[in-house]
């Protein structure tokens, strides 16, 4: 099982086991990671699963898709180059160890 690392504001790390094919948001919510809400269940409708992807993974994760881009633009407080909605990042074996930071507010 690939692992995903979530880094909270205070620097605390939580590592969760994720299933290949599910989204980073789904793995976070099921495991009760604070700060990842995911109200819409991964439908790109709520913009409450915003994360910053760590630099070393940003190339393999890729950029936001068109719909996600609109949500990030209008729905998140502090958008950066590494911003993604974690419901739109699919877990793969290659992303084992993926590290994302949780923003201050959703």
């Amino acid at each position: 099982m690939p692992k995903v690392v979530f880094i909270a504001l205070d620097g605390a790390q939580r590592v969760v086991d994720a299933n290949v094919g599910e989204s980073v948001m789904a793995a976070a919510v099921r495991n009760g990671i604070p700060g990842i809400i995911g109200e819409c269940g991964g439908n790109c409708s709520c913009a409450t699963c915003h994360v910053y992807v760590h630099d070393e993974f940003s190339a393999s994760v890729g950029g936001a898709n068109d719909m996600e881009d609109d949500l990030l633009d209008l729905g998140v407080a502090d958008r950066r180059d590494t911003s993604r909605l974690s419901c739109q990042i699919k877990v793969t074996e290659d992303l084992d160890g993926l590290t994302v930071q949780i923003p201050e507010e959703q």
């Binding site: 409708s45 949500l71 633009d73 209008l74 729905g75």
Partner: peptide, 10 residues
Amino acid sequence: QAGDYMAVRK
């Protein structure tokens, strides 16, 4: 039209 949806929601 996610952009329109988000704009109105905002």
